[in-house]
Every structure is written in C-alpha cells, then in structure tokens.
Design a protein around this nucleic acid. Sequence first.
DNA 1: AAGGCCACCTGCTTGC
DNA 2: TGCAAGCAGGTGGCCT
Length: 311
Amino acid sequence: MPELPEVETVRAGLARQVLGRTVESVELRRDSAVRRHDGGPADFEARLTGRTLTAAVRRGKYTWLLLDDDPDRGVLLTHLGMSGQMLVQPPEPPPTPHTRARLALTGPGGDVLLDFVDQRTFGSLAVVPVAPTPDGAPGGQGSALPVVPVPVAHIARDLLDPHLDRAALEAAVRRRRTGIKRALLDQTLVSGVGNIYADEALWRARVHWASPTATLRRSRLVAVLDSAEEVMREALSAGGTSFDALYVNVNGQSGYFDRALAVYGQAGRPCRRCGAVVVREPFMNRSSYRCPQCQRAPRAARLVPPGGRVL
DNA sequence: AAGGCCACCTGCTTGC
DNA sequence: TGCAAGCAGGTGGCCT
C-alpha cells in the first residue's frame, strides 16, 4: 500500500516531529524487523542509542534518518513494506500486537515514542552505511547531501525528484523488452510507483498495461510518466491513499485519496470517463485494473502478457 | 545478463 | 461451524 505519496507523507511527518531529538533507548519487539541490519539486533540497538536524528530523506519508497549529521557513521534506513507505519506519540501508550520496534526519543519539545508498527512484517529498519551518488546530486528529498544508503544505491530516482533525468529514463524504458506496467513497477528504472499508482497512471494516459516498452509511441510513454507524476502529486496533496487504515501518517491518520481512484479496486464500477465497466485482471500473481474501453490493446500480438513472453 | 518468478509474512474475506 | 483457499503486495534473491 505505501507507495511514494504515502511514504512522503510519513517522511514529512518525521521531519516535522522527530528531528533534533535523541534516541534514548531502543526496544526491539521482533528481531526480524531488523533482518536487513548487518550486525543483528544488539548491534542495531547499540548503533542507534545516543544518536540524534538530524534529517529525514526519501527516495522512492525508502526513507532514511540522518544521525548526528554524520552519514559516515551510518543512517537509519526504513522501508514500510506493505503495511508498515511510523507513529510518533506521547510516551504513555503500551505497544500494540504489531509494534515491531519502539524508539524512545528525548529532546526539544519533550519526550516522544517513535513506533514502527507493521502487521505483515515486510517492512524493516537498519542502520546502514552510505555511498556517494554517481551524479553528485542530493540522494533524495529532505537533504542536500549527495549520498544514499548502500542498500538504496540500485534504486532509481523517483518522478518527484528534481534531479531525475527524464530523457535518460525514457531511453532506459525504451531499451527494455517488457510491458509498460512491469517497467513502471521496476524500482531500478524509476522508483516510487506501486500497483495502485501504476494502474491510475495508465488509465489517465489511456494505455494498456501490456503495451510493449520498446514500441510504445513516444507521446504515449511521455503521457504515462506525466500521468504517474501527476497522480502521485495529487495523492500527496490529499495525504495519501488508504483503504483499510493500514496506511496512516505519523499521527495515525488516513489519507483521502482512495475516493479519487479511477480504476484501482473499482472492478464492476463504470469508468468515470466513458461508462464502460472497469475490469480486474490477473497480473504477476496480483491484480491489474483498467477500463476495457479507454485502455484497449492495439493488437493482441503487440501485447506483452502477464507472464512476460510476447505471443 | 536482462527479465521473470517466487518466498517471505499476517489477517481478513470468501467459499464449500 | 470450521477449515481451506484466496487475496492484499514490495522486495531480494534466484533461476533461466
């Protein structure tokens, strides 16, 4: 669920509410929450305790917190997975069954808890080293430092990143031999887009998910990328999308963008543009939603099927 | 070696 | 009623 707009909402909340505070203690309630941390749970706690959170940075769906303004001693990398939440709250409430880690923070404005809550456990926390960005530009939104966490080095810049090279992205998509939706979801090509915003972008651009990247008309490709950027900006303005309260901001509140979704989760409902009935189709062991009228395939032989092989 | 598959994980919903 | 299957899906690692 958390895609770029949801993760950015969380990043901005962290930037407002925890920066300048120091980690007084770390309570790990489930070791697998730090499975991507190299030294194990004890090392994770040791490397975090006593450090001051100085910036909140995001690229795609990854967020990291700078510690003591000194990236050379590691940064706190977070990924929300499918169901992760970062909650900032007063020190009172006991942990919930899905609280995986709890950081007690102290500093200006009083003591708070930073809880990492994650029902489906695909999210993770880790203190990791950084590497310089190849282009020398800032690593992500929220800091001017030209570094990214090493586990994020293979993640491409996202569509809201002012340093994204759109011409290079279009060329890279063009070199792929796959369907356009697969390309949109490939975080090494462009980051931040997940299943929801991929479907919404393709609907806005009137493009079928299986359209081959290599032969898609340039105007169509530009429309898809522009639509993805546009729909994510709109979702961000609405505080993100939420279906079931799994996605919330740092204060536990849901966004409103689910009311604006045109096709995702709308199977059986009329397309708001043409009235045709929105369909749900199997795609990569999950689902794709589209309008069968607005997003028609040019010809069956020109589509890349869900399995990847061209017919 | 680029592209595709799938395990990982939990809880809710659906169907028999 | 109870159990099983289906579904949600981002990612790393592995396979071809």
